[in-house]
Amino acid sequence: MKASDEFQAPGLDLFSFPPLWPGAPYWLTKPTLMAVVGAVLICVLMWAAFAKPKLVPRGLQNIAELGYVFIREHAARPFLGKDADSWMGLLLSIFFLTWIWNLMGVLPFVQLPVSSFLAFPAVIAFSVYVIKIYVGVREQGARDYVGNLIPRGLPKVAYVLLVPLELLQNFVTSLFTHMLRLAANMFAGHLILAFFSAVGFWFLFERPTLLGVPVGVLGVVMAIVMTGFEMFIQFLQAYLFVLLTAMFIGASLNPKH
């Protein structure tokens, strides 16, 4: 049997895109275009929802306000307390932008979760990282900001190991955890959907056989089920991304120690 006659599972080539046209800059690819489209779309939708707000919200304003209340009550207030309202513009923007980037993975003709490309969540995560440090230094002073990261009242010998770990966690690993959690989940979800879709197409259309058709049907069913599950994960990861944002900023505003 020839290699072309064998089923090939989707691989990393799903995430490889050439420039949009010959001679275009190397970075001007479909993911970049979709990232910009998502950002513009969120700006347009938010403007349409809140440019002329009604006392009794309807339609788009109602949906946007539901999102506002959800983020305020379940992300901002638990970590930012009395400062929650002043940070809602940033948190809401991050939530909706990340969510629409995630949802692009299941949109027909797009089928590309922008957040699966590490560069895009990395830009947001790094921006939050800078804000976190700036706010911490502004509110506490540089010395107290660093000092408040370290728990107190422990045996002195514990600090030999604890101080480097706390500094590493707050100034290095927190940044990578923030962006990698989102990108890795979207990357894996896209691969899973592509796999089951490819199984269905291959065994039902490309190489239908008596034994292969049931496998193809199973692939289609799993693709449908996993699409629904992936949409839930896309929402959940957008929420967790903004939850971590609120947690990092809140820790700088209101140190525990």
Rank of each mutant, 00 (worst) to 15 (best):
T245E: 10
V137N: 03
F248W: 13
K52N: 15
K256N: 04
V69I: 14
A246I: 11
G250D: 01
A238Q: 02
L253N: 06
L12K: 10
P155S: 11
G105A: 08
R181V: 01
P155Q: 13
G153P: 09
A223N: 11
V135E: 12
E65N: 14
V157D: 09
M1T: 12
L161T: 12
L107A: 15
L240R: 06
A183T: 15
L236H: 13
M88D: 13
K2Q: 10
V157W: 12
G38H: 00
V242D: 00
F203V: 11
E73F: 00
V157Y: 05
V135G: 02
H178C: 05
A84D: 08
S197K: 11
K156E: 14
L103C: 10
Y26I: 01
V114P: 00
P151Y: 03
K2W: 12
L112W: 06
G219Y: 08
L180M: 13
F7E: 09
A35V: 00
F95T: 04
A142K: 14
F205S: 06
F235I: 08
E166L: 00
A188C: 07
L211F: 10
G212R: 04
L182Y: 07
V135Q: 10
F201N: 04
G212Q: 07
L91M: 06
V106H: 09
F7G: 07
S127H: 06
V146E: 00
K256W: 02
I224S: 06
R143L: 11
R152A: 10
I133Y: 00
T209G: 14
A35W: 01
L103V: 04
S116T: 09
R181P: 02
K52E: 12
P78F: 02
I71E: 02
L191A: 04
V40A: 14
I150R: 03
L149W: 02
S115L: 11
A24N: 06
V220T: 10
V215S: 05
S86W: 09
F15R: 05
G141W: 11
T245P: 07
A84K: 03
F176A: 11
S86P: 03
I131S: 09
S252I: 03
P18G: 14
L165M: 09
T177Y: 14
V36M: 14
L161P: 02
L80W: 01
V110C: 07
M231Q: 08
D5V: 03
E230I: 03
A9G: 09
L218W: 13
G38C: 13
I131T: 09
V213C: 03
